[in-house]
Amino acid sequence: MRYTAATGTRTWDTVTEVCHVTKYFDQIQPVSLLRRERRRIYALNDVSFSLQRGEFAAYAGPNGAGKSTTFKLLCGMLRPQQGSVRLFGMDPGARRIDVMRRTGVLFGGRNELWWDHPVRASFEWKKAVWDIDEATYARVCGEMRELLDLGELWNSFARELSLGQRMRANLALTLLHDPELVLLDEPTLGLDVLAKRQMIDFLKRVNREKQVTLLVTSHDMDDLTEMANRILLINEGRLAFDGDYDQLIRMAGDNRIVKLRVRGGAPVLPGAQYAGSEEGRHIYRYDAGVTGVQEIFSAIAAVPGVEDVELGHEAIERVIARLYSSWKEKA
């Protein structure tokens, strides 16, 4: 039995292992008419993480944080300057073909369907190129057609599909060879509420029922926290957070929101901080770890003319945005 160096777990269980990876790009930038300056940009700086079989991990970060670079490293398209990347215990750069037989990849905003052919033709194409046996093809095709509602699209030309339909077909195509690891870059980008719901439910089901390991990026943190049971936050090339949703909330501070509708101007609420007003409601923010809910209720009760009260968690988007800003300030 082989064990991985970084985590000490069996390689069979470790689907992906990124070990102290550094990836930088050297750029030559014009600083004046005649002068050029060489600048080194770190896309990833000493990043380590591993994914176990059956994990569903979200990979998030602001634009330019290094998400796409990580995906390209995992697919063997890029090589790191330092560190190592292993998929199923193999170097994806050296053993691209073996790795790709077991991995499904869908890059954001890209299309794997054959444009001028019916959707069916793209599936038949993949069957031949990936050498998928008849039984697997029939089984997975049947599942995908049912779960992703592809029946009506099956004979339509890819160019005639809407964005949501195209994403569904692309996702089904990505999963056609029954991959053990699926890398999805922005799978919910541009989808409407219904299509997004369908996509998220499908991914959760695939992860649960087939034990497929999923690594998903998205700009929509609400989607990611709903889908994934592990969140990897990357910022300026460094892994800034690796844990579950509750740990993330604890790290960012358990911020809660109070929305008050009162007659007159915004009152002072002891223990909470006024954050602004919108649509006749005054919004306050407080840290539940510092101020207890009892104190907040007492403070609200002391305010005269309260018409309505709403309590809730701070949106995850805001939590992440605040984290990004604080990291930027520290840097």
């Binding site: 390209k72 697919c75 063997g76 398209m77 691209r96 073909i97 073996d98 790709m100 037989r101 991995t103 990849v105 890059f107 890209r110 794997e112 190129v129 990936w130 050498d131």
Partner: peptide
Amino acid sequence: QLDHMLIQPRP
């Protein structure tokens, strides 16, 4: 578009 080729398990 080379990326589309690199994800195929073929030389």
